[in-house]
Amino acid sequence: MKLSHVYILKCTDDSYYTGVTSNLSQRLFQHQSGFYMDCYTYNRRPLELVYNCEFTDIQLAIDTEKQIKKWSRVKKEALINEAYDKLPNLAKKKF
């Protein structure tokens, strides 16, 4: 069974990068070494892995990555800090 990973990196400019991969150690090395010059993280190194979740279904991993990318910074930080009980309230819009 091949695992996929959804991960969040904290960049040196204090922003977050969310990605998905089937080889986490290789992908982290690529981010840290600047392997892809046009990648969001290239000019934001060094990076810190702050969240990682494993999936057995690649499509579910991709869908989760897309969902997290749409989240606010506060909601991402709740996920990173394992404050799962706060996630539903952070999804509500304020009118």
Rank of each mutant, 00 (worst) to 15 (best):
L3Y: 05
L3K: 15
S4R: 03
V6G: 00
Y7D: 00
Y7T: 07
I8T: 12
L9K: 06
L9D: 01
K10V: 04
C11F: 02
C11G: 00
D13V: 01
D14N: 11
D14P: 07
D14S: 14
D14H: 08
Y16H: 01
Y16A: 06
Y17E: 03
T18M: 03
T18K: 04
G19E: 03
G19Q: 02
V20R: 00
T21K: 00
S22M: 07
N23H: 12
N23Q: 09
L24V: 10
Q26R: 15
Q26Y: 14
Q26A: 13
R27F: 06
L28R: 06
F29Y: 15
H31D: 04
Q32I: 10
S33M: 12
S33A: 11
G34I: 11
G34K: 14
N43D: 13
R44L: 04
R44I: 05
R44A: 11
L47P: 10
L47F: 10
V50L: 08
Y51G: 08
Y51W: 05
Y51F: 05
Y51R: 03
E54A: 04
E54S: 06
F55H: 05
F55A: 01
T56I: 13
T56G: 06
T56D: 07
T56F: 01
I58S: 11
L60H: 06
L60S: 13
L60A: 06
A61I: 02
A61G: 01
A61Y: 01
D63M: 03
D63K: 13
D63Q: 15
T64K: 14
T64E: 09
K66G: 14
K66V: 12
Q67M: 15
I68L: 10
I68D: 02
K69C: 10
K70H: 12
K70C: 11
K70E: 07
K70R: 14
W71A: 06
W71L: 01
K75D: 00
K75V: 09
K75N: 07
K75Q: 08
K75F: 09
K76H: 00
A78N: 02
A78G: 01
L79D: 04
N81K: 06
N81G: 03
E82P: 02
A83Q: 15
A83Y: 07
D85R: 03
D85F: 14
K86M: 12
K86N: 10
L87W: 01
N89W: 11
L90C: 02
A91W: 15
A91P: 10
K92F: 07
K92T: 15
K93I: 12
K93D: 12
K94C: 07
K94G: 07
